[in-house]
Design a protein around this nucleic acid. Structure first.
Lengths: 357, 357
DNA sequence: GAATGGGCCGTACACGTGTGCACAAAGGGG
DNA sequence: CCCCTTTGTGCACACGTGTACGGCCCATTC
């Protein structure tokens, strides 16, 4: 109701404020009239149906093309009950990881004739509610959620929609919920193992308190690497930020008391903040302390020093998620969980441990 | 057609491959039956129309709520001829500038009951064509384009749509095309002026060959700063990349022959690549050479050294663009061009010129 | 020549919502 | 008591597309 007030100011007659109805798009019937056929014939001709004579079909298509006719997807959606539309939920597009995934999703969706509704929840429950409601009203054929805590809020609403769902880097117990996951455990184990091989023993982990499953799995991988080298995992060497540079700085500050010689960060954004904090304390990377990230975002290779990190094929994961969703929407069975391999990319932010530690 | 093959493997009968029609959503008529009223009454009740008795309206709303009813936006769109939907075109969401703008757009769109179709063109003409066609078929109420060359392709198709359009950081001569622009000229002039004040005289400009108007304006600002200090602008000190780090590295390499002591980059992504190249050549920033960026992306403050740059309020610009579009869609007149101020943010990648130059 | 059948096309719906209009009921004034 | 106004409700459309069904025409066959 608030937005109703925006248009017409109180009392005053609207200047030219009548919400413009478009001046009448031309419809299938207009084409039919020009071509001197009935509108179903036009409909069939444009669908390349074999039920219509090849000559007339060609003529109709030509006329439609010259008139610049565009079939209304909304009318079609109403009758076919499939909108060829998906909803894409993301905590925030401003996060580079998310935007890469979005990119992959959008490309393959378009390639298959689907349009995507983008919505970022900002991790705000109220906004999440509105988003899901909007998707429900838009009658999307499927939903794709990336890097968001799938809260208790989603479930009941989504269940009511009876629409297939695919999660990226998250899981949810439920019949119609599938997911695409990176190998969190193995990826982080490789990163930590790399540090172990370089002779480090006081290795810290800087996680993401909102990472939930991803964070748990990466931490587990971290632990596994240390334990298999018989290095005790000390709680003073574990801290959590929120996956963004700012909070990472604070968490890093706290970790410094334990004097780590290396640190595994939950993701590259965290590594960005952590490294910045290290410099503020006069520590040099990697001479005094080694740092690893996770994701391999576009900037990782361009940092000083270039960041050793675990590569996630984010765009590819978006593509896989969309393809999985496409299968579900067409009624096929699909593997409920797709696992993608992670790859350790060694650059210059990690080095053999020096004397200092 | 290629995608048809993906689902059902050649020859084999599709397992349960019938495109699932959703099992019948419940409609306004179902609610009407339960409430023992006619469906128009339900329609009016849910719109809070004063034409329906307060008691019955309340009862209807309660029933609808309990049944989990969600009005079909597609049916509503068909009859009202307004979908409350906008199309958002972007060269690629993976670009941090774009994703920030997208973020601002999406937020204010949702706040006003609009959903946004996201599409990235990838600067591919064929894809652009498909995108615009999809928007036309979806019957979007408006279109928003950010940081894309608005090619000759767009115009005829968009003109046919008769839909308001708002451009971010681009302009187009045309009746219904509005725009939101950053102060490119003043921003870059401030950055270059800053370098001049620091005593630099051999200042290079590393532009974006696809930046068109933005690049032209920023280059003009660069020139103005130098000329007002009576510094000649030498062509060997001007090069162009494509707005991304990789191409910036190549362009930077070429510039080094002219031995600049400072460099103004078209944007932060360019600065990222340029700086990387400088280091590869053993040059220290800012001791040997100063660098400035443009945008103030999230990583700018976290680089080593933190990047001096020109801040663009990207999210705010997305918001302004969407608000402008909202006005246009509601038939109001709106200022055809909104100009946003840029702000120089001085950090540590620029320093007083040392002896070397 | 009539019956049969196939190829094309039109008629009549349906999808779910919004809205102009008629109309019934209630109330109020003469 | 009648008429007129007000208030609330239902009827009948419309939006643009897809599709089951019937029917026409013409060719073919017996």
């Amino acid at each position: 109701m608030a937005e109703k007030d925006r248009g017409n100011a109180a009392g005053v007659a609207p200047a030219q404020g009548a919400p413009r109805r478009s001046p009448r798009q031309l419809s299938i019937k207009d084409i039919a009239r020009i071509a001197r056929v009935s509108h179903p014939t036009v409909s069939r001709a444009l669908q390349n149906s074999p039920l219509v004579n090849a000559k007339t079909a060609e003529k109709i298509r030509r006329i439609a093309d010259e008139a610049g006719y565009r079939a209304s997807a909304v009318a079609r959606g109403l009758v076919t009950r499939r909108t060829r539309t998906i909803g894409l939920v993301v905590t925030t597009v401003a996060d580079p990881f998310a935007s890469e995934v979005v990119c992959g999703v959008e490309q393959t969706a378009n390639d298959h004739g689907y349009s995507v509704f983008l919505a970022d929840s900002n991790a705000d429950p109220e906004r999440e509610r509105k988003v899901v409601q909007a998707f429900a009203e838009r009658r999307v054929d499927g939903i794709l959620v990336t890097s968001s805590r799938v809260g208790a809020l989603y479930l009941p609403m989504l269940a009511q929609m009876q629409v297939p769902i695919v999660l990226v880097n998250d899981q949810y117990p439920g019949a119609f919920v599938h997911s695409v996951m990176i190998a969190n455990f193995e990826g982080m184990r490789a990163a930590a193992g790399h540090l172990v091989e370089l002779g480090h023993r006081r290795i810290a982990y800087l996680g993401d308190q909102f990472g939930y499953q991803s964070d748990a799995e990466r931490l587990a991988g971290f632990r596994a690497a240390l334990e298999s080298a018989s290095i005790p995992v000390r709680s003073q060497l574990i801290a959590h930020g929120d996956g963004k540079p700012e909070a990472a700085m604070a968490a890093m500050k706290a970790l410094l008391a334990a004097r780590p010689t290396a640190i595994c960060c939950y993701n590259d954004m965290t590594a960005l903040g952590a490294t910045h904090q290290l410099r503020a304390h006069g520590l040099r990377v990697p001479k005094d302390i080694s740092v690893t990230g996770f994701d391999d975002l576009f900037f990782a290779a361009y940092l000083e020093p270039p960041l050793t990190t675990v590569r996630q094929p984010m765009r590819r994961m978006g593509q896989l998620a969309m393809e999985s969703l496409l299968r579900l929407m067409s009624g096929e069975e699909s593997v409920p969980q797709i696992r993608v391999d992670a790859e350790l990319v060694v650059r210059a932010s990690t080095a053999r441990m020096s004397g200092r530690g």
